[in-house]
Design a protein around this nucleic acid. Structure first.
Lengths: 233, 233
DNA sequence: ACTTAATATTGATATATGTCAACCAAAAAC
DNA sequence: GTTTTTGGTTGACATATATCAATATTAAGT
C-alpha cells in the first residue's frame, strides 16, 4: 500500500504531527475531528488553498512547509508568513465571511489535514480552553501582520531583507544554516521589493560577509550585523 | 452641573450612542456593563490610550472622532483606521497579552466609555451571539489591515493618497464634502509617505480638479477620477 | 495686538527603488 | 544529449520618493 494512502488512514489519536491546539480536545472531540477530516499530500509548488475560495475546511499542516500569501495588484504577492508543521491555518474568514483570504502553496512536499469548518466551529463553542487557545494563536498572527505592516512601510530594502532572513531563522529553522526553500522571487514577496532588487540586496549581504549561499543552503554568517541592519532600517 | 459630569452619570440603557454590539446584551448584562464602566470626555489632540500600556479596559467611542495608529520606527506612525462614534476598540491584545497595541488620539472632542476587560470577557463567554458579533467585527478589522498592507506596499503615492481620501468618504463621512479633521501629517501617516510628499500629491490633485480644499473642508470634486487613480495604483 | 510655536508649502537636490534588457546557469522536458 | 524553460544575475537607466532648507501661513499663548 502506498505511503500516501497509509497516512490518510491513520487516526488523529496516533498522529504525531497534529497542531498543539488539538491537545486541548477530549478523546470524544478528537474522534469528531477524526471523522470529519480529510488528509491530503501535496508536492512542492502545488497550491493547497486558493485565495477567495469558500472556506469549507480549516487546515492543519502536519509536515512540510508552505508559504501563505495575499495576491495583490498586477500579479504581485505579499507573503504573510511561512507555515511550518504542526501549525494551524484559519484566518479572519472563519468569523467573517467563510472565505480564504490568502493563497497557500507548498514550498516542499507537505501533508495537510482539512477539517470541516462547521465541526471546527462546534468545537470552539463546546470547548472553552480550545477556543481560548485558538483565539490566542489567531491574535498572535494578527500582531505579526501589524508588525509587518510597520516594517514594510518604514524600513528600506536592506532592513526589510534582513528582517526576512531573521524571520526564517527565528521562527522557522532556529539554525544559522538552513535550506533555501524560498526563491529570490519569494524573498522579494516577503520583503516587498522587486525580484531584481532582492537579488542585489542579497549579493551585497554576501559581499559584506553577512550571509553565505551555496547548494540550496543559506547561512547567516554574521547574525549580529543583520540584526543591526534590521534595527537601523 | 457641567455637561461633563452629566454624561458620566447617564446609564447605558438610555445611551443613544453605545456600540451596536451592546444591543445584543440582555438587560442584566447591560447593567453589568453599566456598573463596570467609566465615562471620560477628551479634548481634540488628547491621547485616549497609549500603545504598550496594560489593557485594563476596552473602549467604546460614543461621540467624536479619533485616530488609531501604531507608533513605528523613529517617531513615524501608521494610522490603521479612523474611529467613529458607536464603534468599539479592542484589538488582538484582548486574547493575546492584555496590552494595547496601538495609540488612540482624539481628532475632535470625543466621549469614550472604558469597560472593564474582565467583565467584557465574561460577557463574551456568557453571551454567544454577543461573542459571534464581536469576533465578526474583529475579523473585519483584521481584513482591513490586510488590505492596507497590500495597497501600502504595492501602490505608489497618488494611489495611496486616493485610497486615503476615498476611505474617509466611504467609511467615515459618506459625503463628498467633509471637514478636514486630518492634518497633512496625519494624511501622510495614513498613506505611508513623508509629510512633504503628502502636500505635493494633494496639490497635484487640486491642480487637476480632483479635490478642493477650503476653510477646513475637503471636497472630492471628481470621485470617479480618484477611484481610477486608486485602481491603477 | 504681539509673540511664539506649530503646521503647511515649495523647489532643489539626493537617494532609493523599479524597470529594462541582456545574459547565464540550472533544472526540466523531450 | 539536446532543447526548452525557469530562475538567477548584472549593469544601465528611469523614476519615485525622501530629505533638506527656506519661507509662508495659521493657530496658540500671553
Amino acid at each position: 500500500m502506498s505511503e500516501y494512502f497509509d497516512k490518510s488512514l491513520r487516526s488523529c489519536h496516533d498522529c504525531q504531527c497534529m497542531s498543539s491546539l488539538f491537545c486541548l480536545l477530549t478523546n470524544e472531540e478528537l474522534q469528531l475531528v477524526d471523522r470529519n477530516k480529510i488528509h491530503v499530500n501535496f508536492r512542492a509548488g502545488e497550491t493547497i488553498k486558493k485565495q477567495g475560495t469558500f472556506m469549507s475546511h480549516v487546515l492543519s499542516v502536519n509536515s512540510g512547509l508552505a508559504k501563505l500569501y495575499i495576491e495583490g495588484l498586477e500579479g504581485r504577492s505579499a507573503i504573510l508568513r511561512i507555515v511550518k508543521p504542526t501549525s494551524f491555518i484559519g484566518g479572519p474568514g472563519i468569523y467573517f465571511d467563510q472565505r480564504h483570504h490568502y493563497t497557500i502553496t507548498a514550498l516542499v512536499d507537505s501533508s495537510v489535514c482539512f477539517i470541516d469548518l462547521q465541526v471546527f466551529k462546534e468545537l470552539l463553542k463546546s470547548n472553552r480552553s480550545f477556543e481560548d487557545e485558538f483565539l490566542r494563536d489567531f491574535s498572535r498572527d494578527v500582531l505579526t501582520v501589524y508588525n509587518r505592516l510597520i516594517y514594510l512601510t518604514q524600513k528600506q530594502m536592506p532592513g526589510r531583507m534582513a528582517d526576512a532572513l531573521l524571520y526564517l531563522h527565528d521562527e522557522i529553522f532556529q539554525q544559522l544554516k538552513f535550506p533555501m526553500i524560498l526563491s529570490r522571487f519569494d524573498l522579494a514577496d516577503l520583503s516587498a521589493m522587486s525580484r531584481e532588487s532582492a537579488v542585489k540586496v542579497l549579493r551585497d549581504f554576501q559581499k559584506e560577509g553577512l550571509i553565505r549561499i551555496s547548494d540550496h543552503e543559506l547561512e547567516l554568517t554574521d547574525e549580529d550585523a543583520l540584526r543591526k541592519i534590521s534595527r537601523i532600517g
